[in-house]
């Protein structure tokens, strides 16, 4: 018995297999980013070429056959339309062939759920940080169970902001970890710090960083200050949400949650309030299929029966529009 999850919202094609809340397989292939960043159509081609092979490989690793599959989950959104489409079509095709239901999964819900699963947390406040997303999220029962967004970016996601800076500073590859490496030993330059209650904005910070590079400041100092400023903003907003909600647990998830510095800062913030801090391993913070399978299984087991008209792709599929039925 197993549920398959297909993740293809951005640069990663991931297939995961889950059996009664246990991840039995989690395989991914990442599109290598060049200096031009992500070109959605190219990434979609990469995904469609890879998806068949990765599914067969995953089933082999998990030791399951087609008849063991009970349901198929795919990422409905948020993400890049062309890329999401590959996962959706694969899921629909497989579902027709095997005669099993399809579960359209919200990508952000999946990131939080797999982190909760990994950390065995029940009702944490979550900071979800990735390329396109930066949100502070917690479960709410009003008016029905859903993930409520307490705060979020007013403009760009923190990951994309850092990647954009990397490209501007000609760091290669243009990636958050490259920025972190080049920031080592830097000195602090004051930069715009924009927190509004539990919301925040990054565009002004990026523009300022580009100007500093143009004015001849060292990449090291700018990278260091950019990272410190952006992460401090995220933690301040999270801290405010934590105090407001009275949460005793806090987790970070999503691609940027792989950052060692962000983890360290989050740990310090929680320590000051006696709250439990948690972060899953990188395997589950980077985009992956297991998280999609995990949520698909929860939806399936709780009796969710999506209409065909729900099984679409939605580039701006917001987490707070999802009814949590488990």
């Amino acid at each position: 018995m197993a549920v398959i999850g297909i993740e293809s919202s951005a640069h990663t094609m991931g297939i995961g297999i889950v059996d009664r809340g246990k991840v039995v397989c989690n395989i991914k292939r990442m599109y290598r980013i060049t200096d031009k960043g992500l070109i959605p159509a190219r990434v979609a081609d990469f995904h469609s070429e890879g998806v068949g092979g990765i599914i067969s490989e995953s089933m082999k690793v998990a030791g399951i056959g087609a008849r063991d599959i009970e349901a198929i989950g795919y990422t409905k959104g948020p993400g890049l339309g062309a890329c999401l489409r590959v996962g959706q079509l694969t899921a629909l095709t497989l579902s027709k062939r095997l005669g099993v239901p399809v579960m359209p999964v919200n990508h952000a819900v999946a990131h939080i759920e797999i982190a909760k699963w990994y950390l065995k947390m029940r009702n944490p406040l979550a900071l979800y940080v990735s390329g396109g997303n930066s949100q502070i999220i917690g479960l709410s029962e009003i008016p029905h169970r859903h993930y409520h967004i307490h705060g979020e970016t007013f403009d760009v996601g923190v990951g994309n902001m850092i990647d954009n800076f990397a490209r501007y500073a000609k760091l290669n590859p243009a990636w958050g970890s490259t920025v972190a490496r080049s920031a080592e030993g830097g000195s602090y330059i004051e930069m715009p710090y924009t927190v509004k209650g539990m919301d925040f904005a990054f565009a002004g910070l990026l523009t300022n960083a580009e100007k500093l590079i143009d004015s001849g400041k060292s990449v090291r100092d700018v990278a260091y200050s950019l990272q410190e400023t952006a992460f401090s903003m995220l933690l301040e907003a999270s801290e405010r949400a934590m105090m407001l909600m009275g949460s005793g647990e806090f987790l970070i998830c999503g691609g940027v949650a792989q950052s060692a510095r962000l983890k360290e800062m989050a740990r310090l913030m929680c320590k000051a309030h006696g709250a439990r801090f948690g972060v899953a391993t990188d395997e589950y913070n980077a985009d992956n299929g297991a998280m999609i399978a995990l949520v698909a299984e929860k939806m399936f087991r709780s009796g969710h029966k999506p209409a065909r008209s729900d099984c679409t792709v939605k580039q701006k599929y917001r987490i707070d529009s999802v009814r949590v039925g488990w």
Partner: peptide
């Protein structure tokens, strides 16, 4: 004082 912020930034803010 916020331990997660570097001292210089924290004092300034």
């Amino acid at each position: 004082k916020k331990d997660y912020r570097i001292a210089q930034m924290d004092a300034k803010i």
